[in-house]
Simulated scan of single mutants.
Amino acid sequence: MRILAAMSGGVDSAVAAARAVDAGHEVVGVHLALSRAGGTLRAGSRGCCTIEDAMDARRAADKLGMPFYVWDFSERFRDDVIDDFVSEYRAGRTPNPCMRCNEKIKFAALLERAVELGFDAVCTGHYATLVDGPDGLELHRASDSAKDQSYVLGVLTAEQLAHTYFPLGDTPSKALVRAEAAERGLTVAQKPDSHDICFIPDGDTRGWLAERVGAEQGEILDRSGAVIGRHDGAHAFTVGQRKGLQLGVPAADGKPRFVLEVRPVSNTVVVGPKEALATAEIAGERHSWAGRAPAESAFGCDVQIRAHSDPVPARATVADGWVTVVPDEPFDGVAPGQTAVLYDGTRVLGQFTIARTVSAVPANV
């Protein structure tokens, strides 16, 4: 096959590309330049997609003897990921930019161009596996549960899966990937994993958002509607947050309070006891299936609401364009804007963006 290897400059994508070469494929490396923000142009930036990363990717490609290119996707990244991130926070939701990047950039824009250029598949260093099932190609968890990235790939469609290649999915551990990189003489063997949001390299998400959304003082309310504090901008809060609330009125029971709801229209934040974070139902209408859609409109599944959270057994219902999920045991601290990924065992069924939540605890508690 002709393979386009997406090379981030990290160890995973470098080893994935190397394995594609070893498998006898015709491989071309490409690094995506996604951001033109100043902070991403200096060595030592804490995100990914820096100039330093591009240089690391080129060195890996040279070592593997493959052609290498840098493609500028910064405008599309700005439109589909950064602007989406800002608008979601402005609407009081908590988005996952990595999920949106996979959906709109790595497996949409990149894959579209790859197919146009005659490539059969895009290779990445994601930890996930593809399985030929009775109804077509299926997306499954990686063998290393600690590194499994199937959650952030839950946005992929059947057509996109047909043009993807995940060489690392069956690798038992990240340590083995690093050891393999060292044996191959790849300089990224011990390079630390990227962290933080790549377009906010200093990690100050609150300050970054304040510059774009604006900081306007508002009220902090308890569940009864009583004013118990003030804030400098609702965008700085997310459901489940405990620190930084600066409440002027202590709770009657003396226990800490957590953010339960962000209301952007009124610029208010609602707080309450930890028990009120329990969520009995979630629903969303922006959904997709990683393969064939479920045959039944109601079905049992496991649901994961964060990249590193445990899956929760639940019952899902699809009706009138919405997916509604009722867990066997309440979720803890779910925020609108998060992504819920549905599983059948290790198989990814699909995903939806959470638009509505129902608390398991009455408001008068």
Rank of each mutant, 00 (worst) to 15 (best):
V262M: 01
L221P: 06
L260G: 03
G240E: 09
L247A: 13
A276E: 02
G240K: 11
A278V: 02
V227W: 02
H231P: 05
G254C: 04
H231I: 11
S224R: 13
A278N: 03
N267A: 13
R242L: 08
K255C: 00
S266F: 08
L260Y: 06
A280N: 03
R257M: 08
L260H: 07
V249R: 13
A236S: 15
E281S: 07
G244P: 06
D232L: 14
G248K: 08
I228S: 07
E281Y: 05
H235E: 03
P250W: 12
D222N: 15
E275D: 12
P273F: 04
F258W: 15
H231T: 04
H235R: 00
R263L: 14
I220N: 02
P250Q: 12
V265P: 00
K274L: 09
V227F: 08
P250G: 13
R257S: 02
R230C: 04
L221K: 05
L221C: 10
Q246K: 11
G240Q: 10
V227C: 06
R242P: 00
R263E: 12
F237Y: 15
N267V: 07
S266A: 15
R242I: 01
R242Q: 15
P256D: 03
Q246R: 15
P273A: 15
G233N: 05
A226L: 08
P250N: 09
G240D: 10
E281P: 01
L247C: 12
R257K: 01
R257Q: 14
K255E: 15
G233H: 04
L247T: 09
R242A: 08
S224Q: 14
G229C: 09
G233V: 04
S224L: 14
V239T: 07
R242V: 01
A252L: 13
I220P: 04
I220T: 14
A236Y: 03
V227A: 10
R263K: 14
V262R: 00
I228W: 09
R257L: 07
T268W: 10
V270W: 05
Q241L: 12
V227Y: 02
A251W: 04
P273E: 11
I228P: 07
G248V: 04
G240W: 07
G225L: 13
V227G: 01
V269E: 03
T238I: 04
E275G: 11
S224W: 10
I228G: 11
A280M: 02
V259N: 03
D253K: 10
T279R: 06
D232A: 15
H235I: 03
S266I: 02
L247K: 09
G233Y: 02
N267D: 10
V227N: 04
P250I: 06
A226I: 05
F258H: 12
R242G: 11
P256A: 00
E261C: 10
P264S: 02
G272P: 06
L260Q: 06
P250E: 07
A251I: 09
A252C: 02
S266K: 13
A276P: 00
R263P: 01
V265W: 07
V262K: 01
V259P: 00
V239C: 04
V265A: 14
A236T: 11
L247W: 12
R263A: 08
D222R: 10
G248A: 15
A234S: 05
G225F: 14
V239Y: 00
R230E: 13
E261P: 01
E261D: 15
E281T: 07
E275R: 14
K243L: 14
G244A: 13
E275Y: 00
